[in-house]
Design a protein around this nucleic acid. Sequence first.
DNA 1: AATTTGACGACCG
DNA 2: TCGGTCGCCAAAT
Length: 120
Amino acid sequence: MSPPEPPDGAREAYVEAYVEAVLQLVEQIPAGRVATYGDLAEAVGRGGPRQVGTVMARYGAAVSWWRVVRADGQPARGHEQRAITLLRREGTALRGPRVVLSEARWRPVDPPAVRRVDVS
DNA sequence: AATTTGACGACCG
DNA sequence: TCGGTCGCCAAAT
């Protein structure tokens, strides 16, 4: 018989949570600033830059996707023109077709985090 | 179970 | 600075 509804659905929720985490971070990037795929991956703490890229490819349209760029400052592959138009509109520091990360890079705020207090 | 596939990244010549 | 190459990581074939 077909399995009723095993913990399989749990993985779905897991993936969904990941997508949410990524999109939430993107929404926090201020206009005029950007974050790299790698930065976001690190902030989420799970998966890598490519996972973030996959999320953006599928759900990015719902957020300010142009504020997520590659480690070298270039916008998402296949969306260079649109991204650059939007970035310029926001006054993001550009040098040719790429964002000047030294000026525009934005880092997610430190996790509320379990800060290990001094051991005194 | 092996291989391919990405809105990626670090390295090297 | 520009390309090519290899490594990554999870999902889809």
